[in-house]
Amino acid sequence: MLTIENLEAGYGDVKVLFGVSLEIQAGEIVALIGANGAGKTTTIKTLSGLLRARSGRIIYDGQDITHWQSHKIVAAGLIQVAEGRKLFPRLSVLENLELGSFLRKLRANRAKNLKHVYSLFPRLAERKNQIAGTLSGGEQQMLAIGRALMSEPKLLMLDEPSLGLAPMLVQDIFNVVQGINDDGTTILIVEQNAVQTLRMAQRGYVMEHGKITLSGTGDELLHDDRIRTAYLGL
């Protein structure tokens, strides 16, 4: 479904990605793990078109989307739940969700999708008129995922969805992600919380210094000694 070949990208004079290659099959959950600064978020940003690729190719659904603009990538169903959530802080919960289906072709299904999101996150229904900036961290994460679902993702990319959340909430979020995948949406998830992520994921990639250094099924990586000492703290 998604193939990345030798992707290079960075900020200003600083290069962060040095030739990243990975592959995601339709229906999979793929985990991308690695230390802070390894280039996980940069990879996702480049996939979304927020950063320009300097070289390499991104093939999505058989199309070369390397130089597409963000809004076109979103229209193609490649949706990101960004690190730090990137919500609209002074708009209401409902307005945030509605903007998730901003694109014309999504508006017809807006009511149906909204119902679906509210069924996943009843809290959002309760707080639909609250200003997003005043929500708690967990609620904001729900809203960020809800907004992404409003865009009818084919491939959903989650960047650190559990960051800063209470352990109980983390489990909730993981359950929701699993549910979304069960409904047929392909998932690329970036996480610090490697153990839980690898348990859920069919396959995983390990990133170090802007390169993929290891890949395998979730189980293989969970039992790899190098991974266990370096990232899992076991």
């Binding site: 979304s48 078109g49 927020l50 603009q69 963000s70 809004h71 979103v74 960004a82 002074r90 998730g100």
Partner: peptide
């Protein structure tokens, strides 16, 4: 309010 967020919901920010 949130330029990247806008881009991520498919708004053509340019």
């Amino acid at each position: 309010q949130e330029r990247d967020g806008a881009a991520l919901v498919g708004i053509n920010t340019d």
